[in-house]
Simulated assay, not measured.
Amino acid sequence: MTIAQSLLTYIADTWMKGDADGLDENVPLLELNIIDSSEIFDLVHHVQTEYRVTVPLREVAPDNFRTVAAIAALVERLRTESEGVR
């Protein structure tokens, strides 16, 4: 399962009562009120726990959480950056 697929499942289960109908990687999550600005922090916690990355506060921005594709790209970038530090 890809990061995006895993995120889609999590979002559907958590905020859409398991109904992922119409939800895909490019759906604007905030604009369609699937999640709100306070729920971004719940999503950040999930991302940090599930994908074992640290999301710096500067990265908790609407652009990084606008769509599932954006969140998946953030996770990949943070993973790459953390591997480069080692």
Rank of each mutant, 00 (worst) to 15 (best):
G18M: 07
S6L: 10
Y51A: 10
G22W: 02
G84S: 14
V60A: 01
E25I: 02
T80V: 14
R79E: 09
A73P: 07
A73C: 09
T67A: 11
D19C: 04
Q48A: 08
P56Y: 15
R86P: 01
T67K: 07
R86C: 12
E83G: 13
H46E: 07
E50P: 00
D42N: 14
S38C: 03
E50F: 02
R52A: 12
D42F: 11
L29H: 09
V44R: 04
L43T: 09
D42Y: 11
Y51Q: 06
A70K: 02
F65L: 11
R86L: 14
V85M: 12
E50A: 15
L57P: 09
M16V: 00
G22A: 06
T67G: 11
S37W: 09
D42H: 12
H46M: 04
V75H: 00
L78G: 01
V85A: 13
R77K: 03
T14E: 15
V60Y: 03
N64L: 08
N33L: 15
Q5H: 14
R86D: 12
A12G: 07
Q48P: 03
I35P: 01
R79C: 06
P28K: 09
S38L: 14
N26E: 05
T49F: 02
S37V: 10
E39F: 10
D63K: 07
V55H: 00
Y10T: 07
D13E: 14
E76M: 12
V75Q: 04
E81A: 15
